[in-house]
């Protein structure tokens, strides 16, 4: 397995690492029929290599928009944004990130293996390499036994795992996840959260993760970015003191509850303004 070298694997404090995602005074205004909508306002944030950053906030706070800016799916109207030291669109063309959407979006006409191979086919990997990589990432998300099954034969949670495998297949250092577990029930979500942490630990990816759920954000992240709407902005950045190893019952510890409380306070403050 070839994983990119991170500075200090296993150490949760990512402050010393180089920022892979860097935004300064980022602005984005959509021109709509009802007049301009200020989606992002003065966003300044550095995300270090190997960090797991969650974006949490109410609808319309711009968290998804910010993620889409990183992916060059939206173009900011002001400020600067760099991904791996490149402008986002260049980073996109360099295939610097894998993107996971809220819906798995697997092709019904391809089996799971071929779905995961889709980006590899497009990027021109050889057949042998495709097979090797598909096997590896399916193993990573524990779907090896389902390589030849079709999406409709899998549960929603399994489909989402397959879509994560698809995003991992081409070894981008950055994983952008837009509410990937938002449509799943809580039990499945817990399990996938646990798996995602293990995956992050194994692969040393930098993950930007958009969510609605406070427990999910606190459980997963090294950094929690609390955002508030109209205009979309960052109201708090919380660095989690939780260890890198996180069993599910860490959610009952006082530290966990305290961070969750702080996130909730931050969200409330954003609403009151």
């Amino acid at each position: 397995m070839t994983t990119p070298v991170t500075d200090t694997p296993g150490v949760p404090d990512a402050k010393v690492a180089v920022p892979v995602i860097s935004a300064s005074h980022l602005d984005l205004t959509f021109q709509t029929a009802d007049g301009p909508v200020h989606a992002l306002s003065d966003i300044t944030l550095d995300i270090a290599k190997g960090a797991f950053v969650s974006f949490i906030g109410p609808s319309g706070c711009g968290k998804t928009t910010f993620l889409r800016c990183m992916a060059a799916l939206e173009t900011p109207t002001g400020g600067a944004l760099s991904i791996n030291g490149m402008p986002p669109d260049e980073a996109r063309r360099a295939r610097a990130y894998g993107y996971v959407f809220q819906a798995a979006g697997l092709y019904p006409w391809r089996d799971i293996g071929r779905n995961v191979a889709l980006p590899l086919e497009i990027m021109g990997y050889s057949k042998a390499e495709q097979r090797e990589r598909v096997a590896r990432v399916l193993d990573l998300v524990e779907l090896s036994a389902f390589e030849n099954k079709f999406p409709w034969q899998l549960s929603g949670g399994m489909q989402q795992r397959a879509s994560i495998a698809r995003a991992l297949a081409f070894d981008a250092d950055i994983l952008l996840m837009d509410e990937p577990f938002g449509a799943l029930d809580e039990i499945v979500r817990d399990r996938l959260n646990e798996e995602l942490l293990r995956l992050w630990d194994k692969t040393h990816k930098t993950i930007a993760f958009v969510t609605h759920s406070i427990p999910e954000a606190v459980y997963l992240s090294t950094h929690i970015v609390v955002m508030s709407p109209r205009p979309g902005r960052i109201s708090d950045v919380i660095e989690s003191p939780l260890p890198r190893e996180r069993p599910l019952d860490i959610r009952d510890t006082p530290e966990f509850i305290e961070i969750a409380h702080r996130v909730r306070e931050g969200l409330r403050a954003g609403y009151q303004e």
Partner: peptide, 21 residues
């Protein structure tokens, strides 16, 4: 839109979008 966005994140050429999606 999501499917098209996904193709965009792969930086997929138009022909690939046509054939594969």
């Amino acid at each position: 839109a999501m499917q098209m966005d996904l193709m965009r994140t792969y930086n997929a050429p138009t022909a690939a979008i046509l054939w594969k999606l």
